[in-house]
């Protein structure tokens, strides 16, 4: 389903698994103490689908995508990633995290390592790739995100936009099937938002399965196959970008859109 192009961000296409969706979330509920953060969420992300999740702050959108790679726990329901059930067992979590890459709002680059080492470390430790191959692959993805000759700098020496692109390269170096983006441009200066969104758009064009929590509605319009609107821990509305933006059905979605689209 995915073509191997030489200049593609996605080097190895995921194993064709028939009709298995990339992610299946079934009746997912999560509580922090007595506060219910997720309420019976059902969501399926198809292979190659670009999903944008939006909603007011505190609506549970970050919590939802963080449950997909077990950075958050859940109490009820089920999550399947590439058909693998996500339990608390080490093997299950390892298998899921191998398939899922993540980009954070605060970049979370490792400040004690160079840019190149940031991209190589997990390849060496998790994939057991040789030093040489790891370096080649890391440099390859750093080239993709257009961080040409910064490989031997430390993260603190780069701009915010460059740091976030390194974070994308770091996740891609692990060659995941699915990429999660948790508000990837929210911590950036305005003039750096575009370079990160461009990288994400390029990645989307190459067939990566993506779940993006963002307030960048322009990106959603342009790239998303489907927009999911969440509020107070539940999915309120979902649809194609054109449906969602031109004709939101729910009042909460309309209110939200009127607030962010001035």
């Amino acid at each position: 389903m995915m073509q191997k192009k030489k200049l593609s961000l996605v080097e190895t296409a995921p194993e064709p698994m028939g009709a298995t969706p990339a992610v299946q979330i079934k009746s997912l509920s999560k509580w922090y103490g007595t506060f219910q953060a997720l309420k019976n969420v059902n969501l399926t992300i198809a292979r190659g689908e670009k999903l944008v999740i939006c909603g007011p702050s505190g609506s549970g959108k970050s919590t939802l995508i963080r449950t997909i790679n077990a950075l958050e726990s859940f109490q009820e329901g089920q999550i399947l990633v590439d058909g693998i059930e996500l339990t608390r067992k080490p093997e299950a979590v390892e298998a899921v995290r191998k398939r899922v890459g993540m980009v954070f709002q605060q970049f979370n680059l490792f400040p004690h390592l160079t840019v190149l080492e940031n991209c190589m470390l997990a390849l060496r430790l998790v994939r057991g790739v040789s030093q040489k191959v790891a370096e080649e692959r890391a440099l390859h993805y750093l080239g993709k995100v257009r961080i040409p000759d910064q490989a031997h700098k430390y993260a603190s020496q780069l701009s915010g936009g460059q740091q976030q692109r390194v974070a994308i390269a770091r996740a891609l170096s692990m060659q995941p099937d699915i990429m999660l983006f948790d508000e990837p441009t929210s911590a950036l200066d305005p003039e750096m938002v575009k370079e990160v969104l461009d990288t994400m758009t390029q990645l989307a064009g190459e067939g990566m399965t993506m779940a993006v929590v963002t307030h960048e509605m322009g990106f959603a319009r342009q790239v998303a196959d489907r927009v999911v609107f969440m509020d107070r821990g539940e999915i309120v509305e979902q649809g194609t970008p054109s449906e969602f933006f031109s004709n939101p059905k729910e009042l909460r979605a309309r209110t939200f859109l009127s607030q962010i689209l001035h």
Binding site: N69, A70, R97, G101, N108, F110, L125, V126, A167
Partner: peptide, 25 residues
């Protein structure tokens, strides 16, 4: 916390997260 999360998201095991990411910092 973000350092732990980034390390875990990349699939590092607890021991590697501690010795390669957290302790050096």
């Amino acid at each position: 916390k973000g350092q732990w999360e980034a390390s875990r998201a990349l699939g590092l095991r607890p021991r590697d997260t501690l010795t390669r990411i957290i302790l050096p910092q």
